[in-house]
Computed example of a mutant assay.
Amino acid sequence: MRVLFIGDVVGNMGVHMIESYLPKLKQEIKPQVTVVNGENATSMGRGITLSIYKRMMSAGVDVVTLGNHAWSNNEILDFIDDTKRLIRPYNFPKRTTPGKGYTMVNVNGSQLAVLNFQGRVFMDNLDDPFALADELVTEIHKTTNCIFMDFHAEATSEKLAIARYLDGKISAVVGTHTHVQTNDARILPQKTGFLTDAGMTGPADGMLGMKPESVINRFLNQRPARFEVLETGRGIISGCYIDIDSKTGHTTHIKTVMLSDDQIN
């Protein structure tokens, strides 16, 4: 099976890129499953709304993952329990957190488990993603060997660490959160596909999707600044696609994808 994963969708331009260019990308790549990280998809660049979720699904997305901004828009509390294909990091406190951290997708008679976890280095101190992933993967193996993980984390070492820890146990680990696509797509020794970060989808001329001026001023004066999503200029869509052996769950191929408006038009 082929899985297309698209990195953090940022703001109105990011949603526009999904609606306008994802169908074209899917026509070229021909994935069986499309997963998109949507935790920055609102006009403020934080959180997601029900309307945006539905727009993504209408554009051909199968699963939407989240991250540390999952709860930045309070509206999500009203609909996350009713949306089967919207998942938040599994390692939020289980007893008190709505929604779920993984979902199953049927693919031509096989099943793909899509997992969402969040790292802890330089981020909130959530439950241990290593221990919880171990438990969850063991349970999912009773159903399928095909398991994809969006690991939303800051530290590159933590992303690679969980991938190496789970090497041979899951099909692929792809990182999100830093909004910069890395050049290290590879297959680990036990056949788990890995990419440190898929990159972002949204304003190509911003700084991680934000207006450059406020970010630069923060470095110049060291004072708090309000970051705003850039709404003008070129758009970019970033991610990767992964080929998974449906029987073994092993990755057989992984390749990055990055296109901007001027490349697509």
Rank of each mutant, 00 (worst) to 15 (best):
R2M: 10
G7Y: 15
D8Q: 03
V9G: 02
N12V: 10
G14Q: 02
G14Y: 01
V15Y: 03
M17F: 03
M17P: 01
S20C: 02
Y21S: 12
L22A: 08
K26V: 02
K26G: 09
K26H: 04
Q27M: 05
Q27R: 11
V36W: 00
V36T: 03
N37Q: 14
E39Y: 00
N40V: 01
N40A: 02
A41Q: 06
A41N: 04
S43I: 08
S43G: 10
G45L: 05
I52M: 08
Y53S: 02
K54M: 07
A59N: 01
G60R: 05
V61T: 14
V64W: 00
V64N: 01
N68F: 05
N68M: 11
A70M: 02
F79I: 06
I80M: 11
R85E: 15
L86E: 00
I87Y: 00
T96G: 07
P98M: 10
Y102M: 02
M104V: 08
M104Y: 13
V105A: 09
V107K: 13
V107R: 12
S110P: 03
A113D: 02
V114R: 01
V114Y: 01
L115A: 05
N116R: 00
Q118L: 09
G119E: 04
F130M: 04
A131N: 12
L132C: 10
A133D: 02
A133Y: 11
D134S: 14
T138N: 15
T138I: 09
E139F: 11
T143Y: 15
I147E: 04
I147W: 01
M149H: 02
D150G: 01
F151K: 08
E154K: 13
A155E: 07
T156K: 08
L160A: 12
A161I: 12
L166N: 05
L166V: 06
D167T: 04
G168M: 11
K169A: 11
K169P: 05
A172G: 07
V173T: 03
V174F: 10
R186K: 14
R186L: 13
L188E: 05
P189E: 06
G193D: 05
D197A: 03
A198C: 12
M200N: 06
T201C: 02
P203K: 11
P212Q: 06
F219E: 07
E228H: 09
T232H: 09
G233T: 08
G235N: 11
G239K: 14
I254P: 01
I254Q: 09
T256K: 15
V257P: 06
L259P: 09
D262T: 14
I264Q: 07
I264G: 05
